[in-house]
Design a protein around this nucleic acid. Structure first.
Lengths: 313, 313
DNA sequence: TTTAGAAGAGTAATCGATTACGCGTTTAAA
DNA sequence: TTTAAACGCGTAATCGATTACTCTTCTAAA
């Protein structure tokens, strides 16, 4: 009929095409989905769409999938497990063909659904050992950051951490520890500055206050590696307020290469994640699962990161 | 049956509920949509999901609609008319119940579809005079910004503009002009610095280079009102590079209250848009159109903005 | 006791696109 | 010329939920 199925003559084709153009016929995807058991739609679960890095990734995934004929339902979960599970049910009801789950999503309901529909995780440890995981090389990034500070002369580097329940956070801590070890620098628990997972005050304020508190307690650091750029900016502010010169007396490294980092003063040195690479790998992996289920996809893909030196080291 | 339609006994209800819980039945939204001619889905057309202000708005719209039982398909159009129209067709095929169109979307196909499904525009002049428009009071914001600079002592204020095809941009120019007029300050065309609508170099670089070029030509300004914060940061950099002291010799105002503005050095004074207000008004207007079509909704809703004074004025 | 009316349960049509199937016609091969 | 295969086209079933409709049974009123 409309597409090459069935057999029909040139004449009928013309007639059909005429009617189509005359009436402005548009195919009804809902009916099509019901019949085909396929919606050409994929779902994305993301904790916070306004987070600069992941919104970039989502944007690129969406563009890629659109070019392949898929539309994307983006679900903002606010790190709320109930909302996540509600979305999961909704997406299932909409017969999505695939699902991408981005960092920080707990989604306990995932396990029950993942049997039927293909899932790709980004920056999120899947429970199921077969689920595909795409992530930046957080370990490498943290190592590079810490190493760079050491090479510039820092000897007592703090690490500022938040949301340790994320595997990406833990990987970054490990990378940091590895660098200290490789350069034979001592490490003690008091070098870890842990921040609560709250919305108010902002991450920057939180980091600033925490580092300032450490200074007040008499702890001395000559550098801080923050797990993201927002925290790093707080560290910069704390150091400056404490009368330290950056970078000669105190060095700071961030992570994520937030668009802020280039414009804050002093300009923040950081680790750039390859949003394009992550988006491409994730989209391709998901498409492959959907369209050629027999083809094996690498279960764990790790994307290289890049050291960006600006003015804080 | 499942919901209160039809008549049935307590006994049958129990049986049905038992089977539901045993089999883990989930309603199929696709079939439901086909039958009901309603998808409980709304579409959002947005030029760039990674833009900080609108991504905040979208996030809030999505949360609101989710709480009302709707899911949201977010379509990133990249300011590409073809992509916009393709999305429009796709959304129509998915039988969306409503559509939100955000600033910078051209979507020529909108006219042909808007007859059938409810549309709400945000920050975008609709062609159709009946379509609802929600926007910040750009005029007021620009006026407040310019007025604040004048009151602090600026007399020759430039305005840095990009994407003049947006009604929001034009409103901001008008607000700026009105303030100059109200304070009896002269205005000439050379005070307008127009920037091309390109992706590379960044808006900040663009603004910086343009203002620097004006300085080099011998033009003198004691302040600049930039149409958004990215441009404003460029203006700050240009002024500093030109040896001007901020704010005593040169004042800068931005617009949008980008998350950057609080952290750049000096901290940027700007105009804050009420993302929550816009999201709420837009969602409520759309829901009203969908669920109570007879009820009239204000065609044009203008949301107040707020002057934020930091260190650049 | 008869009967109108209500109430429960089951059947079938519907939404729109897809596709398997069958009938009738044409063409090519034996 | 006969037979088989190819071909065009129309019909009907299907996807899953909803709902209108019918049929049967039961209750209450006359």
């Amino acid at each position: 009929m409309i597409n090459n199925n069935g057999r029909f003559s040139e004449e009928t084709r013309k007639k059909v095409e005429k009617v189509i153009s005359e009436t402005g016929y548009e195919t009804n995807d809902v009916a099509k989905s019901l019949r085909m058991q396929k919606s050409n739609t994929i779902g994305i679960l993301i904790p916070d769409i306004s987070s600069s890095f992941f919104s970039k990734v989502v944007k690129k995934i969406e563009a890629f999938l659109f070019s392949k004929g898929y539309s994307t339902i983006i679900c903002n979960t606010d790190r709320n497990a109930d909302k996540e599970n509600a979305y999961l049910r909704m997406l299932e009801g909409k017969m999505i063909d695939g699902l991408i789950v981005i960092s920080g999503v707990k989604a306990f309901g995932l396990d029950s659904m993942s049997k039927n529909i293909p899932v790709v995780c980004i920056d999120r440890e899947p429970r199921d050992k077969e689920t595909i995981l795409i992530e930046s090389n957080h370990f490498q990034g943290a190592f590079l950051a810490t190493e760079a500070m050491i090479q510039k002369g820092s000897r007592k580097i703090a690490i500022i951490v938040q949301r340790e329940y994320l595997s990406s956070s833990r990987d970054r801590i490990n990378g940091y520890c590895q660098a200290l070890e490789d350069y034979s620098l001592p490490f003690s628990q008091e070098q870890i500055i842990r921040l609560p997972d709250v919305i108010e005050p902002s991450r920057t304020e939180l980091a600033k206050a925490a580092l300032l508190a450490r200074f007040k307690k008499g702890q001395r650091f000559d550098g801080a590696f923050a797990i993201n750029d927002r925290l790093a900016i707080g560290a910069v502010q704390a150091a400056l307020e404490n009368g330290l010169t950056i970078p000669s007396e105190f060095r700071v490294m961030g992570f994520d290469n937030d668009s802020i980092s280039k414009y804050c003063q002093p300009k923040l040195s950081t680790i750039n994640q390859d949003s394009t690479g992550i988006a491409e790998k994730a989209s391709q992996a998901l498409l492959s699962l959907i369209e050629t289920p027999t083809k094996k996809v690498a279960r764990h893909q790790v994307i290289d990161v890049e050291l960006i030196v600006r003015e804080t080291i």
